[in-house]
Amino acid sequence: MIIEATNVSRVFSMPAGPVTAVRDITLSIAPGEHLAIKGPSGCGKSTLLHMLGCVDTPSSGTLLFDGRDVSTLRDRARSLLRLNQIGFVFQRFFLLPMLTAAENIELPQSEAGVNKDVRHARTRELLDYVGLGARADHRPSQLSGGEMQRVAIARALANRPRLLLADEPTGELDQTTGEQIASLLDRVNADGTALVIVTHDPGLADRCRRILTMKDGRIESETHPVGRALPASPKPSGEGGSGPPGASR
C-alpha cells in the first residue's frame, strides 16, 4: 500500500467553534490505484486530499505513507516525501508565470537535485507525453487553460511520483478541454501512477475504477463503475513503463 489511513479526522478550530471537515475515515490506496472522491461542496474532499498528499496532518487517527507515520515526520522530511513520491495537480494550475513551460517542468527536478542533462531529457519526454512538444518555450500567459493544465500535469510527474493527486483538475476548463485532461490523466494512471481525483464532475469521476462519495466529512459509499472493475492485482510499479510517468525509481 502507498497510503493507509486509519480513523483519520481533521478538525479546524474556528472562533465560532470547531469545524470537523473529515470524520473518522479509514482508507488505503494501492499502487496504480485509480480513485475518485466526489461529494457536495464542503463535504471535506479537499481536506482529505491534502492529508493524503501530506500537506496537512490529521487531528486524530494515523496516516501511513509507505508504512511511515506521516505525523512523526518533520517539515523537511515531509517536503522530501512530497517531492519524490507525490505529484499535485491544482484546479488553478499554479504555474510560475515568469517561467516557460519547460522551466516549470524542470523546477521540481532541480529541487530534487537531478542533473541538467537528465533534467532536460526528462522535460522533453514529458512535454511530448502531454502533447506540448512544440510549446516548450512558451510562458503560461501564452498557453490556453487546457495547455496550462497539461504543463502542470507534466510538472507533477517530473520526479516520477508513485501517487498523483488532483483537486478539481477540470474545474476551470470547458467540457471538451476537460475531457482531454481527463483522458490524459487516464493515460497517466494506465502507465503506472496511482491517481486520486477530487471532483464534482460525475463524468470525470465515472472514468475511475473506484469512486468514494463523501458527505459531511465521511465516506458515504464506495462504488466500482461497471466495466471498470478493480484489477485483480494492482499494476506493479514500473511495469506500465511504456510512457514517461513511470513509477520506477
Partner: peptide, 16 residues
C-alpha cells in the same frame, strides 16, 4: 501565496 503553497505541495522545503 497560491504559487508558493503549490511549490510547497510539490515538495519545495520551507527553507527554499
Amino acid at each position: 501565496l497560491g504559487e508558493i503553497a503549490a511549490l510547497r505541495a510539490l515538495g519545495f522545503t520551507r527553507m527554499r
